[in-house]
């Protein structure tokens, strides 16, 4: 464990908590893409299957349980409890266009052709594009509540911090994983446009307005 990875995990945890609080407090999931949340749930379920087979550390196990539970709770709040506030017609990204390529890519480019490895690889590829429906929703509505932009900033920062973690691990332990790094770079690049808007607008107290 290193400071970059710890900061990344805490940023990820913060993002998930911000989202849950936003939906719970405002009793509304307006502006949030349910499709992205479905993709994140798939990412966690396919990546954390080893929760029951290999014990790495208490931290590792607890975080995996928290991520799976929080994503389940978010889906429940969005699709059951506050279903009426779900923005169906703006949340229209075709997630099969993300799922299918990720499955194919995971079958072609992976470290090992075993079930666990393919699922892990699929999860890594899917996570890199899972935010697209959310960014698509923000672009369609043209704006985002400030709490939603804080959520996106924390979520984007998590994988950016992981990139620093991978640089550190390469230098300190000569450990690297090109699949995770490549997907992490793609994932972080998708947030760049949002990071620019967040820093130039939201941090100055303005609302996140995308140029029409």
């Amino acid at each position: 464990m290193n400071i970059f990875r710890l900061a990344g995990d805490l940023s990820h945890l913060l993002a998930i908590i911000i989202l849950l609080l936003k939906i719970w407090k405002t009793r509304s999931c307006a502006g949030i893409s349910g499709k992205s949340q479905v993709l994140f749930a798939i990412v966690y379920l396919t990546r954390y299957l080893d929760l029951f087979t290999t014990y790495i550390s208490l931290y590792n196990s607890i975080m995996k349980i928290v991520f799976i539970a929080a994503s389940g709770a978010t889906l429940y709040l969005m699709y059951v409890k506050f279903k009426a506030t779900y923005d169906h017609n703006h949340d229209s990204f075709r997630i099969e266009f993300l799922l299918i390529p990720c499955v194919i890519l995971a079958l072609i480019i992976n470290h090992d052709f075993t079930v666990m490895e393919i699922l892990w690889t699929f999860s890594i590829y899917l996570e890199s594009v899972a935010i697209l429906p959310q960014l698509f929703l923000v672009s369609k509505t043209g704006e985002a509540e400030s709490i939603t932009s804080h959520y996106l900033f924390a979520l984007g920062s998590y994988r950016a911090l992981y990139l620093l973690n991978w640089i550190y691990r390469y230098m300190a332990e000569s450990h690297y994983d090109l699949i995770a790094i490549f997907a992490g770079v793609v994932q972080t690049i998708l947030y760049c446009d949002f990071f620019y808007l967040y820093i130039t607008k939201v941090l100055k107290g303005k609302k996140l307005q995308l140029p029409a």
Partner: peptide, 10 residues
């Protein structure tokens, strides 16, 4: 070597 220690990341 990469295999086992890759899985220690979330």
């Amino acid at each position: 070597r990469i295999e086992e220690d890759k899985k220690d990341e979330l």
